[in-house]
Design a protein around this nucleic acid. Structure first.
Length: 510
RNA sequence: GCGGAAGUAGCUCAGCUGGUAGAGCGUCAGCCUUCCAAGCUGAAUGUCGCGAGUUCGAAUCUCGUCUUCCGCUCCA
C-alpha cells in the first residue's frame, strides 16, 4: 500500500513539475480540491475528449452533439429530483465522532421492518407450500400489517419533515426511533444539518429582484430539455443519441484524491433515446461499446471492471459502473444507466410540454426511454496518467521516468531534435518542423545532450523523436526514435508525414 | 466535521540545545560534444504557509490560523 501511495505521490509531483496539472490559485495557497491544467495537461485532456467525441459522434450516424449552458432554469432541478435528492441531512454522533446521513439512518430502520416482513413471508411459504398466496398473506397477516403500518408512519413523518426542511423534527424522529450509533452504541447526537450539494448563485444583479439559480450538478439535464429541439432539427429517428461534454459542479463534503473527486469537474455524457422495452438491449450494447473505448485507451483487462449497482438511483432501472484500478483502488470512472422515461416524463410534468416521439414503424406516440453513458473526463485523465507513468531501470543501470501514453493521446506527438546546434542542423530541423506542424503538435529542442533531450520528451509522453544529424544533410534521412523501445530507425524525410500520421492515428483502435 | 501527519528554491529534501538560508536534481546563458539524464564555467530563484507571542535575536520555542496528505464520514 505504501508503495502505491509513493507511486501516486510521484505521479502528482510529476504532473506539477512537467506542466500537466497545477493546484488552482497556488500563489494564494491554493483553493481546496480545485486544479488547473497546464500546457501539457490541456493537450492530453483535449485529446481524450476528442477521442470520446469522435468515438461517439463521428462514428455513430445516429448520435449528434450539443453544448448546453451551465445555468439552467431553476425548475429543471426540481424536475430532475436534484433539489430533493441532492440535499443531504447529516448528523454526527458526539461520542464516536462518526457522521451519518440522517435519511440513511432512518431508512435503515424501515429496511429492518421490511426484512422482518420478508422473513414472515418466507416462513409462511414453507408452511403453506404451493398453495401460498403471497399478496394475500401480506394483506392479512397481523404481524406484517403492524410492521407495515410502522414503516408507513416513519416514512410519512420523515417525508413531511424533509419537505418542510424541519431539521429538528428529523432529529426527533431519530431519537424517537432510538437509533444508536453502530460504533459507540450511544444516542448522543448533534443537531441535524442540511448540506446542499448544488452550488447556488443569483441571476440578476439587484438582490431582491434576482432569483436563485444553480450551477448544474450534471450535464444530462441540458440534453433532456433540448430533446425536442434536437429531434426537430437533426432529422434523427429513434434510436438516437445526444452527446455533450461540459463542466458540472457538486459541493462535495469531502473532495479528495487529487483530481479524482473535485467540486468542479468535466463530464462526457451521451443520452441514448430508445423505444420503451428495448432499453435493456441498448444498455447492454453501450456497456460493451464503452468498455471497448476504455480498452482503446491502453488499459489492460485487469485494470478495468464492471461494478453493478445493487441499489439504483431514483431515476434508473439498471446501472453499472466501469471502474479503473487507481493506485488507491478500483473506483468509478464511468456510469452507464438505464434511466427509463423518468427524466423526460418529469420535464413533461413540470414544463407542460409534450416530450414525445412519434414512431412511424409502430404508429405510436411515446416518451422514449433513455440509456445514459456518463464518463468523468478528469477521472479518465487520471486513469490514463496512472496507467502510463513508469519509473524504469535501464540496462545500463540508469533510471528514466516515462509516460507510456498511447500515441494518439500524447500532448506532443514528435520531438524534433538537431543532434547539435551548429553545422546547419537547426535549420534543417526547422524544415522538418514546417513539414509536420500543420498535422501534429511538435516540440523543438536543441539544448543539452541528445540523451537528455530524449529523456525530457519521455517524461512528457512524446511517442516519437526525430533527430537531424550530419547524414541528414547528405541523404535527407533522419532517425525516428521510439519512446517505449528507445529503438531508432532511419527514414527519409519524404516519408515522414505518412509514417508519423499512421503511428499517431486512432483508426485501428475502434 | 473528527483523528493522525506534514508545510523551507520549480521538484525531492537537509537545516542540532534559537545566532545572517543549504544540497541534489531541474531551469537559464556559454563552452565542449556525432545518438540516450556526460563534463566545465557562470546565473536566476526563498517574507522558511500565514499571523501573533517569548527573546537582544525565531525556519528552529509557544499559541492561533490556513493549506495539503492519510483514515473516518459523504459520494447519481
Amino acid at each position: 500500500m505504501s508503495q502505491q501511495d509513493d507511486l501516486f505521490k510521484n505521479i502528482v509531483s510529476h504532473c506539477k513539475e512537467y506542466g500537466f496539472i497545477f493546484p488552482s490559485s497556488e500563489i494564494y495557497d491554493g483553493l481546496g480540491a480545485v486544479y488547473d491544467y497546464g500546457p501539457y495537461g490541456i493537450e492530453l485532456k483535449k485529446n481524450i475528449q476528442d477521442f470520446w467525441w469522435k468515438a461517439m459522434v463521428q462514428l455513430h450516424e445516429n448520435i449528434v452533439g450539443l453544448d448546453s449552458a451551465i445555468f439552467m432554469h431553476p425548475t429543471t432541478w426540481k424536475a430532475s429530483g436534484h433539489v430533493d435528492a441532492f440535499n443531504d441531512p447529516l448528523i454526527d454522533n458526539k461520542d464516536s465522532k462518526k457522521r451519518y446521513r440522517a435519511d440513511v439512518l432512518i431508512e435503515d430502520v424501515v429496511e429492518k421492518y421490511r426484512q422482518k416482513n420478508d422473513k414472515e413471508v418466507e416462513k409462511a411459504q414453507k408452511r403453506f407450500g404451493d398453495a401460498f398466496d403471497e399478496a394475500q398473506f401480506r394483506a392479512t397477516n397481523p404481524n406484517i400489517l403492524r410492521n407495515q403500518a410502522k414503516m408507513d408512519e416513519i416514512e410519512t413523518r420523515f417525508k413531511a419533515a424533509l419537505e418542510a426542511g424541519d431539521m429538528a423534527e428529523i432529529k426527533q424522529i431519530i431519537e424517537d426511533l432510538e437509533i444508536a450509533c453502530s460504533v459507540s452504541g450511544t444516542r448522543n447526537w448533534t443537531e441535524v444539518r442540511q448540506f446542499n450539494l448544488m452550488f447556488s448563485t443569483q441571476l440578476g444583479s439587484v438582490a431582491d429582484e434576482s432569483s436563485t439559480i444553480y450551477l448544474r450538478p450534471e450535464t444530462a439535464q441540458g440534453i433532456f430539455v433540448n430533446f425536442l429541439n434536437v429531434l426537430n432539427t437533426s432529422r434523427q429517428r429513434i434510436p438516437f443519441g445526444i452527446a455533450q461534454v461540459g463542466k458540472a459542479f457538486r459541493n462535495e463534503i469531502v473532495a479528495r484524491q487529487f483530481i479524482f473527486r473535485t467540486r468542479e469537474f468535466e463530464q462526457m455524457e451521451m443520452q441514448f433515446f430508445v423505444r420503451p422495452g428495448e432499453e435493456m438491449q441498448w444498455y447492454n450494447y453501450w456497456k460493451d461499446s464503452r468498455m471497448k473505448w476504455h480498452r482503446a485507451l491502453g488499459f489492460g483487462a485487469d485494470k478495468l471492471r464492471f461494478h453493478d449497482h445493487l441499489k439504483t438511483a431514483h431515476y434508473a432501472n439498471a446501472a453499472v459502473d466501469i471502474e479503473f484500478d487507481y493506485p488507491f483502488g478500483f473506483k468509478e470512472m464511468e456510469g452507464i444507466h438505464s434511466r427509463t422515461d423518468y427524466d423526460l416524463t418529469q420535464h413533461e410534468k413540470h414544463s407542460g410540454k409534450k416530450l414525445r416521439y412519434f414512431d412511424p414503424e409502430i404508429n405510436e406516440h411515446y416518451v422514449p426511454y433513455v440509456v445514459e453513458t456518463s464518463v468523468g473526463l478528469n477521472r479518465t485523465f487520471l486513469a490514463v496518467l496512472c496507467n502510463s507513468y513508469k519509473e524504469e531501470t535501464l540496462e545500463n543501470g540508469e533510471s528514466r521516468v516515462v509516460l507510456a501514453l498511447p500515441a494518439f493521446l500524447a500532448p506532443i506527438k514528435v520531438g524534433v531534435l538537431p543532434l547539435m546546434k551548429k553545422d546547419g542542423l537547426p535549420e534543417k530541423a526547422r524544415e522538418v518542423m514546417s513539414l509536420l506542424k500543420f498535422d501534429h503538435q511538435l516540440f523543438y529542442d536543441e539544448k543539452d545532450s541528445i540523451g537528455k533531450r530524449y529523456r525530457r520528451q519521455d517524461a512528457l509522453g512524446t511517442p516519437y523523436c526525430i533527430t537531424i544529424d550530419h547524414q541528414t544533410l547528405e541523404d535527407n534521412t533522419v532517425t525516428l526514435r521510439d519512446r517505449d523501445t528507445m529503438a531508432q530507425e532511419r527514414v527519409s524525410i519524404d516519408t515522414l508525414e505518412a509514417i508519423v500520421g499512421k503511428k499517431v492515428g486512432w483508426k485501428h483502435l475502434l
